[in-house]
Structures are given as C-alpha cells and as structure tokens.
Amino acid sequence: MRVTCVVNGETRQADDVWPGESLLYVLRERLGLPGAKNACEQGECGSCTVYLDGLPVCACLVAAGQADGRTITTVEGLAPGTGEEQLDRVQRAFLATGAVQCGFCTPGLIVAVHDLLARDPAPTDPDIREALAGNLCRCTGYEKIMEAVRLAATS
C-alpha cells in the first residue's frame, strides 16, 4: 500500500508498505528518518516517541496505514535549522546538563519533554516524573534528565 503523510513539514510518500508495518518502521526504514528509536517496539520504552497531529505517540504502536494523511513531527524536525545554535531549547538543555549518555532514549525523551513544556511551562518535579514515566533510560538514572527539564523550562 501507499502511505502519504506530512513529516517535519514536508509531504512524504512511501510505496509498497506492507500493512503490518508500523509508523516507526516507515519512518526509519522507508523515509530515512532513524531519529525515533526502536528500543522495544512494543510500547514500553518511549524511545520511538513522535508527534502525530500534534500529540505524542509511540510510533511503534501506530500502524503505518493509520498515519496516512496525517502530520508527523520527529526529533529531526524539532530544531528550526541545522547547527548547534539552531537547536530547540530542550535539545540544548539535554546537552548542557549531561542528560545524554548513550543517547538511545534521548530522541523520545526530547519529544516528550517538548510536549510537556508546551502543555505546562513550569512543571513541578512530581509533574515531570509523571509526564516522563513512559520513557525508559538505562544510562543516567534520570537525575540529569530532571535537571535538563528544569533548565529547559526556565530558558
């Protein structure tokens, strides 16, 4: 089947999509956007988080066909331009606080934090923890991720 959607502001089309494929697979393997990650492919880790029509979703749980005609923003589409100065404030905060180690959780977390701060510009610590409970990180123990969210909220 053919899937057409707007990804990071551009209309993109994928052909010969097998109906069992997920949005994650289409993004990563057919559209050349491997930013969303594949840590579990069963909705448990949040590493594949992208915006679908403005709402954060686990791309691994969205069937490719469901994305047809919709608008998707991935981590690759968050920064308005390329280069370090152009990064979104959430991306900059992750770098400044050392919230990135292996970085496999990072793209999903950045989309999730971006969404959190859009909804709640000044979240408390318990709010942050609740909002990010679906994003696993194995490297950091989350302390520096907490710092990154607090920094992004005030920058």
Binding site: P34, K37, L78, V100, G103, T106
Partner: peptide, 23 residues
C-alpha cells in the same frame, strides 16, 4: 573540565547513527 560530548549535538537531533540505523 566538564567538556561537552563531541557526539552530543548529533544525539539530541536524532542524527547519530546507531547500529540499528544503518542502511
């Protein structure tokens, strides 16, 4: 010093090529 990671910008922008991203 707490020098920044040289791979940091790539990692936060989704451009860093992990072993499962290759093609």
């Amino acid at each position: 010093t707490s020098a920044p990671r040289p791979d940091g910008v790539l990692k936060v922008s989704g451009e860093f090529a992990y072993s499962s991203d290759l093609w």
